[in-house]
């Protein structure tokens, strides 16, 4: 296996509701994968299973050939403990729909929190890196602001910088522009576009079909907990084969 992420036969239930129904997929190194689909289709759940915010009920996921969440012993998979799961989460960075910046910390403190407290790196080494990331997202002048002083678009760009400060192998985006005012979306998308160009492996759950068409290497359409169709942006967005995909894209573009 040389893929960045391999997932086999994932199942996830919330009570009686089956959020993921035998989902399998692979993500290559450096690939940008966009997941689209109606709400409740399981696309956010899928993303949250990759970094163990949700625990899968069956199936298995590997990141860079490391089995995540479990340890194999004979014919059983044993669940890992809190500290081991925390360590495995470091391989992926996550950006949320609602930003989730730490409200009691300034922008700079938000970015250096993980590297300093979790990775135990020296502050003197981390701060210049954090400033470089702020430069990348165009917000160096906001380093001493608190999240509540920033617009949604600014907060989301800081959230991306915070995730990148951990030097993850892949980045997960959970509807990163859905909570933004329309005029603030483009700033966030341009940061994500630059990140994709730099070769970062990215999984993006999004409703921005324009972004998917332009940046994604592959688009996956999900519905009712299953992957209905997957292919190049051209195949999925312009000439989808499945009726459900056609209906969804028509509804979004309408």
């Amino acid at each position: 296996m040389s893929s960045m992420v391999v997932a086999v036969d994932l199942k996830k239930f919330f009570g009686d509701f089956q959020a993921l129904d035998n989902v399998s997929f692979e993500i290559e190194h450096g690939e940008v994968l966009c997941i689209i689909g109606p709400s409740g289709s399981g696309k956010s759940t899928l993303l949250r299973c990759i970094n163990q915010l949700e625990r899968i009920d069956s199936g298995a996921i590997w990141i860079d050939d490391e089995l995540i969440g479990f340890r194999q012993d004979g014919d059983k998979l044993y669940q890992l403990n809190d500290a081991e799961i925390a360590r495995q989460r470091l391989s992926s960075g996550m950006v949320f729909q609602r930003f989730n910046l730490f409200a009691h910390m300034t922008v700079l403190e938000n970015i250096i929190e993980g590297p300093v407290i979790v990775q135990k790196r020296a502050k003197t080494a981390v701060i210049p890196e954090a400033m470089a990331l702020l430069e990348k997202v165009g917000l160096t002048d906001k380093k001493d602001s608190y999240p509540s002083e920033l617009s949604g678009g600014q907060q989301q760009r800081i959230a991306i910088a915070r995730a990148l400060a951990m030097k993850p192998k892949l980045m997960l985006f959970d509807e990163p522009t859905s909570a933004l005012d329309p005029e603030l979306v483009s700033d966030v998308l341009s940061v994500m576009r630059d990140l994709a160009k730099s070769g970062m492996t990215m999984v993006v759950v999004t409703h921005e079909l324009g972004f998917a068409r332009e940046v994604a290497n592959r688009v996956v359409f999900m519905d009712r907990g299953k992957i209905v169709e997957s292919g190049t942006p051209q195949e999925i967005l312009s000439s989808p084969k499945e009726k459900r995909t056609q209906d969804f894209i028509a509804a979004v573009l309408a």
Partner: peptide
């Protein structure tokens, strides 16, 4: 959301 953000940067409980 604050708790999830702390989890994804690898914090233990």
């Amino acid at each position: 959301g604050q708790i999830e953000a702390a989890k994804v940067i690898g914090m233990t409980r």
